[in-house]
Amino acid sequence: MIALLARDLSLAFRAGGGFGLGLAFFLLVVVLVPLGVGPDSAILAAIAPGVLWVGALLASLLSLDRIFALDHEDGSLDLLATAPLPLEGVVAIKALAHWLVTGLALTLAAPLLAVLLNLPAPGYPWLLLSLAVGTPALSVIGAFGASLTIGLRRGGLLLSLLVLPLYVPTLVFGAEVVRRGATGLAPATPLALLAAITAGSLALLPFAAAAAIRVNLR
């Protein structure tokens, strides 16, 4: 398990591994929005929570199709499925690796980018917290979506279509935490709901994804 995590991480940080791509995309979104919306700092402050969350969500979407597709292409998924690791565990580890490479990096970068969007000061801790709690759900939901599209040659767009509606609750609660935090309201309720979604997804989706992988390898 740990070996798998180490392998996925070292692959991600190597050339062509996709690390940094998500961060660059996140930066692009945050730079482009003010250019499109206009420089009014009050407006930017109001939309900052949503823009940051949408940006993080789209950035994590970017590398989802690599989670299983590469292993499927070179045959290692077959070998992993016959190895003494439960496939559910493989899914969980791969989602964890995806999160460490994208979700965690996005979470840490978000406060810096929030400066560009004039996020009100009380919002910062909630931004960090909500992304830290919510992005694992994005990774594991994404791994589930990726498991459905393993065998498809051009699965990228389909994957986005499948995953985006599943991202809705996470996005809604995540952005709500930041919005409430930034405007001084109590963000405890949406934060609890966000944590519940993450916990539920982490507990159940690896099983669904493993079932989908078995179907795909058949």
């Binding site: 740990i2 070996a3 798998l4 392998r7 070292s10 692959l11 190597r14 050339a15 062509g16 591994g17 292993d71 070179d74 045959g75 290692s76 077959d78 070998l79 992993l80 190895a83 003494p84 690791l85």
Partner: peptide, 20 residues
């Protein structure tokens, strides 16, 4: 298919399966 990761060294490839 051999299930090799072309970005990793020969050593890393085989050690991965050894630890699995």
């Amino acid at each position: 298919a051999d299930g090799l990761k072309s970005a990793l060294t020969v050593d890393a490839n085989i050690s991965f399966w050894a630890s699995v």
